[in-house]
Design a protein around this nucleic acid. Structure first.
Lengths: 206, 206
DNA sequence: CTTTAATAAATGAACGTGCATTTACTAACT
DNA sequence: AGTTAGTAAATGCACGTTCATTTATTAAAG
């Protein structure tokens, strides 16, 4: 085996740096020059390793999808009620968008996802992983009696997912409260009509 | 008042053309050259009349906000049940995003709205106008007995708005069915638990 | 142990392109 | 004449990408 000059920094570091830069300026504002400087390289190197700017962004999207998949696929912490876990998971999954600017960057990525088939594939996978996770938590809530028996968990999962996405959007626009608060309220509103009486809310009233 | 050379085309035409171009390529992909060509002008003229590319886009945002405001502020068609009107209004308001590409453009604009204060102002106004419209329709539905008495219309309006926005987002991702269908289902899911029994749904079952 | 060849990685400088914007000028209208 | 609209050409900049070259590393050859 013939090895050449070793790589100074490995792809993971570059992708982390790229993510950080994207977090600041968004995918559109991203320039190879900035990423290169921050990682101690020169733009041409990035092109050589990732093929193009698009290649770099695509690799980042791939990585992010993998991370998100891991988040939604991870095993529950024990003894936590399913609906609490649902709220926790949702809030956590949207933590990287918890400022209007970061949310805007998220949207910018989504724009790419909707336009470019390769990006779309990853985004769709994440979206479906989330749907699965939500639905299985709802199903568990039904089986433990937190939700009314006979609840259509598939339909409800859709509602919860829509409430999540929609709440994020509204919050980014009106900027009232924190994203986490709003998500809790939004999910609660979607779920509360389906709670097993006498429960009225999944939020602890303090 | 001293008038000089008359304007060849008035601003409204330019804005309509701009909107059309944006619909094709998105706000980021917009170039003055293309707009200018389509309207029979030269880029410099657009700059002179709107100050800059940003000025043109801002004027367009202003116009769009005005249009949206008119839509949400218009008087109800008579004898239509409030909840039907709610669905109709929602579907209509999202008609210009009824393809994934158009939705992506909408999102791209939203990215600008979240980043640029002047754009944000218009977007927020539209959002609040929608909220108002939804809430007043819900209030009417309560008063006519379609919704249960005692329903918190403000909270429910929020839910409906979130369901609307979230449903749009999900549809753009998974592309199942038409946006209108999905919106109907999404709103129905949000409202059905609050309907006055024995009603279960606001969708006509055919 | 050198030396040398082969290979991969990284670089720096140049290139080209796409675009918004500026400037100087012309045309139309009162 | 004075005022406004429009234009053509030039300017300048910001980037992505290409290319020839240098550097680091290993494997074999002497």
């Amino acid at each position: 085996m013939v090895t050449g000059r070793p790589r100074g920094v490995d792809d993971a570091v570059i992708l982390r740096t790229t993510a950080e830069v994207v977090g600041r300026v968004g995918p559109a504002g991203l320039t190879l020059a900035v990423v290169a400087r921050e990682v101690g390289m020169v733009p041409a190197t990035l092109v050589q390793r990732f093929g193009s700017k698009r290649g770099l962004l695509l690799a980042l999207a791939e990585q992010s999808a993998k991370d998100a998949g891991a988040l939604f696929g991870r095993t529950r912490s024990e003894h936590e009620p399913a609906l609490d876990a649902l709220v926790t998971l949702t809030v956590e999954s949207m933590a990287p968008m918890a400022s209007p600017e970061m949310y805007a960057n998220h949207l910018a990525f989504l724009c790419i996802d909707l336009t470019d088939p390769q990006f779309h594939q990853h985004a769709l996978a994440v979206h479906q992983a989330q749907g699965q996770a939500v639905e299985s938590l709802l199903a568990e809530a039904v089986s433990t009696g937190a939700l009314r028996a006979g609840t259509d968990t598939v339909a409800l999962a859709r509602s919860v997912q829509a409430a999540t996405a929609g709440t994020g959007l509204m919050w980014a626009l009106d900027r009232q409260g924190t994203l986490a608060q709003r998500l809790r309220q939004g999910i609660d509103a979607a779920l509360s009509p389906h709670l097993q009486p006498p429960d009225r809310s999944i939020l602890e009233k303090q």
